[in-house]
Nucleic acid binder design. Structure first.
Length: 212
DNA sequence: ATGAAGACTTCTTCATCGAT
DNA sequence: ATCGATGAAGAAGTCTTCAT
């Protein structure tokens, strides 16, 4: 018994119509009709009563539909289990992260994750923010964690959060008298101090993943 | 292991028939 | 007239076999 024929049969049983099933399956109605006919020949039993406005399951059809439904569910379960074997519970996740994240919340996240999935290992590479995005795009890392201002082409952001932005100035600096301080006003500081520039320019922390 | 040729399967389009 | 199922013919893709 062909699985495609069973799939077609089940769709006709669900929709009560060959044409509706064909539409859902994205094939021609005659193809669905023929597969159902072939099943009936193979089983030597009538699976549907042909009515002017649709198809009604016979007793034999009900029996086959119940079987086909169980088979479909089991197939989905097997596929799901095989995918999990290859991904969630075992294997290696390649992380590309910026320096600041590598010593802050990434270790905490990995620790929490490994409490639930102890057999998953992480390969962490520290790189600059632009390189993180590029490596995600190329597929060299599975997940990237970086600071970005806008979304990047070719990668999908799955999680992001705003992070506090700090400006470090001398205790007698004039900006201290004007709190709060806008980004525009702090730009002279950004141009002089690399630490301040890094903290001011990157206002979002995001997690991006290669693929979907 | 690889490529060619024929067989086989499945699909689409079109036409037809029957029920409403 | 409209809608749905089905049959015929042909197209396209896949599989199998065989020679190299």
């Amino acid at each position: 018994m062909q699985t495609s024929a069973l799939r077609y049969f089940l769709e006709v049983a669900r929709t009560g119509s060959v044409s509706a099933a064909a539409q859902r399956l994205r094939v021609a109605a005659s193809a669905v009709s023929r597969q159902v006919s072939n099943l009936e020949k193979e089983l030597d039993a009538l699976l549907f009563e042909r009515r002017a406005r649709g198809m009604i399951l016979t007793q034999a059809g009900e029996t086959l539909a119940a079987y086909a439904q169980r088979l479909a569910l089991e197939s989905e379960q097997v596929v799901s289990e095989i995918r999990e074997l290859n991904s969630a519970d075992k294997g290696l996740i390649r992380l590309g992260v910026t320096e600041g994240l590598a010593i802050s919340f990434i270790p905490e996240m990995i620790h929490a994750f490994r409490k639930r999935h102890a057999e998953v290992a992480f390969d962490i590479k520290v790189m600059s923010p632009l390189v993180v995005t590029e490596q995600v795009r190329l597929g060299s890392v599975d997940i990237g964690a970086t600071f970005v201002l806008t979304s990047e082409r070719g990668v999908t952001t799955h999680w992001q959060r705003a992070v506090p932005t700090y400006a470090y100035v001398a205790s007698n600096h004039p900006l201290l008298a004007r709190a709060p301080v806008s980004m525009a006003r702090s730009s002279p500081i950004r141009s002089r101090c690399s630490m301040a520039r890094r903290r001011c320019a990157r206002s979002w922390t995001s997690i991006a993943r290669h693929g979907d």
